[in-house]
Nucleic acid binder design. Sequence first.
DNA 1: GAACGGATGCTCT
DNA 2: GAGCATCCGTTCA
Length: 194
Amino acid sequence: MNDILPTDFYHQPTLELAKSLLGTYLVHESKEGTVIGRIVETEAYLGIEDAAAHSYLGRRTKRTEVMFGSAGTVYTYVMHTHCLFNIVANERDIPEAVLVRAVEPIEGHELMRSRRGEKGKGRQVSNGPGKLTKALGITMDFYGWDITKPPLYITKGETPEAIEEGVRIGIDNTGEARYYPYRFWIKDNPYVSR
DNA sequence: GAACGGATGCTCT
DNA sequence: GAGCATCCGTTCA
């Protein structure tokens, strides 16, 4: 796997990056084995001007600190009983990131399913933000990780045939921001969350 | 140190 | 499709 996407790849407008990430391969090498998931659904969070983003109005805390850092940094966040996986985009001091909402298993199906347990059969194994992190073995340990190096990195994948866009999910109480069309997914892919 | 609430998932109807 | 279970980081006292 020498097709690791370089840091430069992440230095682009967040909305562009969200679309560019569709179809790429998210790889995690662990002692249990290697798992690869093709990113099929993403959402963009535009920091300053986006009421749904943790970094809204430049809000800077321990939690959002990495969003202000360099592009290509991993931003993990614990939500309810789950862990969500984001990738910081754009330039330093511009707190924007892309949330990975769903992946399609490419390699390591057995390992993913065993991590998910009985609930993770079929497409249920990774068709959601909290599900994919568990399937891929991503935890808060990767907070601040540089996504361009092993054991957790992204490689060039298959360019999607068609991309669709729509409103984001799970942010019903954020005013106008809930209507922004910042969600992107690969058309007709069965692993898209909903 | 206590209270709060959320970028969800699962079960049941 | 709707309702509820479930925790930990952040925030405030």
